[in-house]
Computed example of a mutant assay.
Amino acid sequence: MRTTFDLSPLFRSTVGFDRLIDMLDQVSRVEPMTNWPPYNIEKAGDDQYRITMAVAGFSPDEIELVQQENTLFVNGQKHPEPEGVQVLHRGIATRAFKQSFNLADHVKVTGASLENGLLTIELKREVPEELKPRRIEIASGTGMKALAQDNQPQQIEHEPQQKSKAA
């Protein structure tokens, strides 16, 4: 039995979290078969993450990783079996798969490896220095000039323009 969640209260009370709410909305509509291949998402450090996917039977040249903006696409496509091979029982899945992961801002793929049927994708969040929080010193009132707003009309003095004589 599938339960559905009404996310409309979130839409009414949040500003600027459209992507997050869209992701939550998509998760509630996911079909059971789109969870293949199985995967884990781990936090490996303060700004380091790891995605591990079980892709037994796939070789590195049959898997494609593409990061486009804030989305990581993982596609797997088996090469056709050689002529003359007759499989009597297929227990290892060889169907193609497409999986996408929405990444937070400034998260980049730093590496990927395939070992023992597990695809491991290393990710790191690298926030540029100009976007990192910075502490702002507060000056004491004695050292700063007071900025006051003066609504009094100001008189602007103009120097008289000299007329040029035409000869």
Rank of each mutant, 00 (worst) to 15 (best):
A139L: 15
M23R: 09
W36H: 07
E62G: 01
Q152R: 15
D25Y: 06
A112F: 00
Q152V: 07
T3K: 14
G84F: 03
I21H: 01
Q26T: 08
F97K: 02
V15K: 10
L7G: 03
E122G: 06
I41T: 10
P133A: 13
E129R: 05
L20C: 01
E62A: 04
Q161A: 14
H89I: 14
L119R: 02
Q26G: 00
Q162T: 12
V74H: 02
T34H: 07
S13E: 09
Q155D: 10
A56S: 14
H89G: 04
E31F: 05
K98L: 12
E69F: 11
S140C: 03
I63H: 06
P37H: 00
N40E: 13
K163M: 12
L24C: 08
L119S: 01
P80A: 06
P60S: 11
T34D: 12
V109K: 09
E137H: 06
V127Q: 01
Y49I: 00
G117F: 06
Q162S: 14
R125V: 00
P133D: 12
P153H: 08
R12Q: 11
P37C: 03
D150F: 06
S28F: 03
L7K: 04
I121Q: 05
Q48I: 00
S113Y: 03
T110Q: 08
S140Q: 13
Q48H: 07
V87F: 08
E126Q: 14
S13R: 04
G143L: 05
E129A: 11
Q67S: 04
L72Q: 00
S8L: 04
F11T: 09
D25C: 02
G76C: 03
F5I: 13
Q154S: 10
W36E: 05
A146W: 03
G57L: 03
P80K: 05
A56F: 08
Q155A: 10
P133F: 08
E157C: 05
R134H: 11
T142L: 13
E69L: 13
F97V: 05
Y39W: 09
I51P: 03
K43M: 13
L123Y: 01
P82C: 00
R125Q: 11
L123C: 01
I121V: 15
L20G: 04
L72M: 04
A167W: 12
V27S: 06
V15L: 09
M23P: 00
P9M: 03
A146E: 14
S140E: 14
V107P: 02
A104N: 12
N70H: 12
Q68S: 14
A139S: 11
H79L: 11
L103G: 04
R135N: 08
A56I: 12
D6C: 02
F17L: 15
L119H: 00
D46K: 12
S59E: 14
